[in-house]
Design a protein around this nucleic acid. Sequence first.
DNA 1: GCAAAAGTGTTCCTGGTACACCCATGC
DNA 2: GCATGGGTGTACCAGGAACACTTTTGC
Lengths: 245, 245
Amino acid sequence: MPGRGSKKIAQQPTLADFKVGVDNVIFSVDTAQNRLLVLLVMRQEEPFSGHWCLPGTLVRQGESLEDAAYRILAEKIRVKNLYLEQLYTFGGPGRDPRECDGSYGVRYLSVSYFALVRFEEAELIADGVSGIAWYPLEQVPQLAFDHNKILEYGHRRLRNKLEYSPVAFEVLPEVFTLSDLYQLYTTVLGDNFADYSNFRARLLKLGFLYDTKVKVSRGAGRPASLYRFDAEAFAPFKDKPLVFI
Amino acid sequence: MPGRGSKKIAQQPTLADFKVGVDNVIFSVDTAQNRLLVLLVMRQEEPFSGHWCLPGTLVRQGESLEDAAYRILAEKIRVKNLYLEQLYTFGGPGRDPRECDGSYGVRYLSVSYFALVRFEEAELIADGVSGIAWYPLEQVPQLAFDHNKILEYGHRRLRNKLEYSPVAFEVLPEVFTLSDLYQLYTTVLGDNFADYSNFRARLLKLGFLYDTKVKVSRGAGRPASLYRFDAEAFAPFKDKPLVFI
DNA sequence: GCAAAAGTGTTCCTGGTACACCCATGC
DNA sequence: GCATGGGTGTACCAGGAACACTTTTGC
């Protein structure tokens, strides 16, 4: 950080001034239909007015990045449970058209966050004006800014996290069948992994899935047991390499 | 981004103005002494003048984040080979003392990058004024700003990456013995994993380590073969789950 | 010769894979 | 009854863990 407040003003390269935005990639899963969903909102202002985009906001004075991420989330949906982590920071010049017009030289930088919510518990807040909707991942349209890129990055993160951490239980309902769990993995990762019975056996042996003994019947077939993720029983596995495949 | 350029000026929350810094966590390994090293520089300006810190810079107009990361790196060391990836963005208010004094309301945000270089090939650029040095990780002092936190984050990333990706070959010399490789893993991860002979057998079976047949003798004991990482032979494993433990 | 470090091989056993098969429901 | 989906068990095999052993150097 050369020469801030110093006297040699000769050929100082000019620093860029930034506005910092936070954009959230919010995933959920519709267990009933086995669809991976992402939350999109319709932009009301220029640029890209009328285009869908990831829910985002600019960071306010005194607000931390994470606070900003929680704020947009709270503005858009009401949730009981929430998983949130920082994703990536996109900041090349020219990623936002506002950089050219109006305020000279201001750069727009986006710190993206990755969130998982439970579909059943997430209640979308429609303010009457702005559109907001869950989009199945394969049906996501062209988004504003570089949001398709951000979304893709988030999707990759989700796939990676599924394999080695218990994020699945953040998107599944409180109680779920082992089929639900297996379906979730196949819808997100494809079905190039262990078959259902092996998947089942492995997960149960680990011992952090609690069988509530409650049965649910969905159409034909034998009723399935509802299971609950037992965070306490999982604790020993925390930070240890663990493969869910 | 509510009401930019609109007419209702009433109670708009004020957006924060940011300067964006890039800080690099640059790791290397001294194979001879089996030490994990991190590059530190001595700050010459306030705040924290006279303190060690991670090499960093503020982003200039027209410069991408990654460009800035490469720029500081190039200012500090000359390298032939380089691995670089974004680490994390630290941006809470109050992380930089400059936020209070002088320019009102400006926030300082740090996008950190993670870099690996080869110790033998890395030539430190001493400009006569500023201190610059490789620090063994256990001897790192109190750093300026929140750089200890950033460093710790980078260290965690390094440990994770070692387990499932071939980053080891970015810090090892072009040719290395299998002991060197094993030592690297133990110095970074501890020795809670497979013993040398199993490690060795597993790695060799994968087939992307090319035996140059050249032998080196280091003191007593049988001379070791020098191996070379064969990126082509590794390609099929790219993006596949692969454990190096 | 002996110690030290590199390199090879062997045995044991866990844990993944691929199935076959039984169970409980709707119709 | 039969189709459907849930749940259990078994037989096989790859690959990891532990460890003994051989080879080649320095001294």
